[in-house]
Design a protein around this nucleic acid. Structure first.
Lengths: 342, 342
DNA sequence: CCGGTATGTAAAAACGATTGCGCATGCCAA
DNA sequence: TTGGCATGCGCAATCGTTTTTACATACCGG
């Protein structure tokens, strides 16, 4: 049925080993033989069977990835697709493919990863989310299997590519302070993600360094969902003494806030200034356009792929943690016009 | 190093074949042996090597997918991530994984697919876009390799899952007509995608059935980008006699239009009513919220996965084309208040 | 008591490729 | 002429499974 190395060998009048050597550019093969074999390969459209080859070399040229579960991911459509684009583009460039699997529960996910690792189905694994106490990470560490995390995992010594989220959040907060705000709130994400912690830390640091009030009431937690933003907005606007600006964990959440404010007749940035994270394409298009910290999602994926492959090929990573730079994009949602005119 | 079937066999005091049979639930295995082997398997954490298994069974339990190139995809972030979620979720449920590969040119893409197919790296392929004259489709047809297309390919007899885009566009247009509009324009997508044609056809059909003017000037083509919308808006608003409503190929494009209109001080829906496609999460959040046709993207992916796997397992698909229903979601961008009050 | 049928397991042959080793051949220098 | 070395290629083992074939043992009815 499908054409094997033997078919090529027979037609070329050589042995399978010779064909194999031609294809791997073995030095001790004559020009003529090589030429001839290559012609036949072309003619028959031969491609070596990945299974057979992998069986021997114990390599798959495949990176594994666990698709975040809907509940956790819904929100992060943008993060998800952008990072995958980065990962896959870079992987392909280096001759690797990307395998995705999904689990419907944490239990499922661990099993899926186990299957990939033990079954030698992939050469390495990319984790898209850094959750606290992730059993997948424990497993991979125990197995000493190559993997990379987008984000970080406490202070554990693992290969990862991350933003400096604390600094990013610090920058965003300082920006609001520089616009004259003194009462600044923070809308956080799920507490089981390290990114929530990091950004909260940066926010607090900025406030304390500038001697501003830190009100526990002004920090709310939510999901990466518009509804969370909507609810947070309702909460804040009902406070007797409310913040004049918010740092928000994700653009999507900000959209929810924006919608609520519009419904209630409040104006942004006049009644409430907003800065958030991710700088998704639509933040530029909302009214008003959102100030947002661009965290280089595509690059996160791209780097993750590159570093993991290097780790697989060379074994010893020279540096465990790589930081992708962020950039605050200031748009109308945080520009305090009154102050600028004064 | 890694634990193989022989290790299990040795430790259980049986032959490898017996272990294999235990794991595949072969009938002629005694309860005791089965029990014992399973314990050892558990104890050693044995998972069968996918390569070795695939080599013999000629199955990979993997579906292949070509990641759309950035240029074509940028826009369709949402379509992309939603359909992948659908594909992967369903595939995982049926014990399949999804392999993604990327090509930087059409040539590259064909080569990548060739590699997957000839190297027996996947059992079937899912195509996310239906382009006209797609060399990948020709290749797969020639190879008689299982694949499914999201969309359709002219009238070719291939397995596909699609919306009834003509009907969807017809519905959207009729909705505008029912709101009292008589001058309706159409903003299309790239001409090499069949979806653009289908929707244009539905639009035209609605107009002609209702005896409305069809003005060539009122049909513009663009990309799936905000800029396209912005440009289309500029074009339309400068026409001496301009449409009062538009059917737009994609929500993202509509966002561009909306932005332009806002900048120029026009009001939606009063100055221009809008209906578009995809019903992305943010269409609900824009001001005004967008009317949009929900085409069930997740379900498209989900079905594609399911039908392809069935095709792989059973060989003969009973039905080639599957239609995922659409639903027009009416929001403020197309509700003609004046007319409603009259 | 014996042939026939179940039953449980082992041995061996695939699957399609890679690779160490060895066998020719040809060339050069001693 | 001969020993040594470089060159070009085939043989056979190997990777970890599955699967076919075969071989024991046990059981049954006649």
């Amino acid at each position: 049925m499908t054409v094997t190395i033997k078919d090529v060998a027979k037609k070329a009048g050589v042995s399978p080993s010779t064909v194999s050597r031609v294809l791997s550019n073995h030095p001790r093969i004559s020009k003529e033989t090589s030429q001839k074999v290559k012609e036949i390969v072309e003619e028959l459209g031969y491609h070596s069977n990945i299974m057979a080859r992998g069986l021997i070399s114990n390599k798959t040229y495949t990176l594994g990835m666990v698709l975040p579960r809907p509940a956790e991911e819904l929100f992060q459509n943008h993060f998800f697709s952008e990072s995958i684009r980065g990962i896959t583009t870079q992987a392909s460039r280096q001759g690797y493919d990307v395998l995705m699997t999904a689990g419907s529960s944490e239990q499922d996910e661990v099993e899926a990863v186990t299957r990939l690792v033990r079954g030698r189905r992939v050469d390495g694994i990319i984790l898209l989310q850094s959750r606290k106490n992730d059993p997948i990470i424990s497993f991979l560490q125990k197995e000493a299997f190559p993997f990379i995390l987008i984000g970080h995992y406490g202070n554990e010594e693992i290969l990862c590519v991350d933003n400096d989220n604390e600094q990013a959040s610090y920058d965003a907060t300082v920006h609001l302070i520089s616009q004259g705000h003194e009462r600044i709130g923070f809308v956080s994400g799920p507490t089981n993600l390290t990114v929530s912690d990091d950004r909260l830390k940066g926010y607090k640091k900025a406030l304390s360094e500038h001697g501003l009030r830190m009100e526990p009431d002004w920090i709310v937690e939510g999901e990466f969902l518009q509804e969370s933003g909507y609810r947070a907005m309702a909460f804040f606007m009902n406070l007797p003494e409310r913040p004049t600006a918010l740092v928000v964990i994700d653009d999507i959440v900000t959209f929810g806030i924006l919608r609520g404010l519009t419904e209630l007749g409040y104006k942004v940035p006049d009644d409430l200034s907003l800065v958030s994270f991710n700088n998704i394409a639509l933040s530029e298009l909302s009214s008003p356009p959102l100030s947002s910290v661009d965290i280089g999602i595509y690059q996160l994926g791209y780097m993750a792929s590159q570093l993991l492959i290097r780790h697989i090929d060379e074994d010893k990573p020279q540096q465990l943690r790589t930081i992708v730079p962020h950039k605050l994009i200031v748009r109308e949602s945080s520009v305090n016009l009154k102050r600028n005119w004064s």
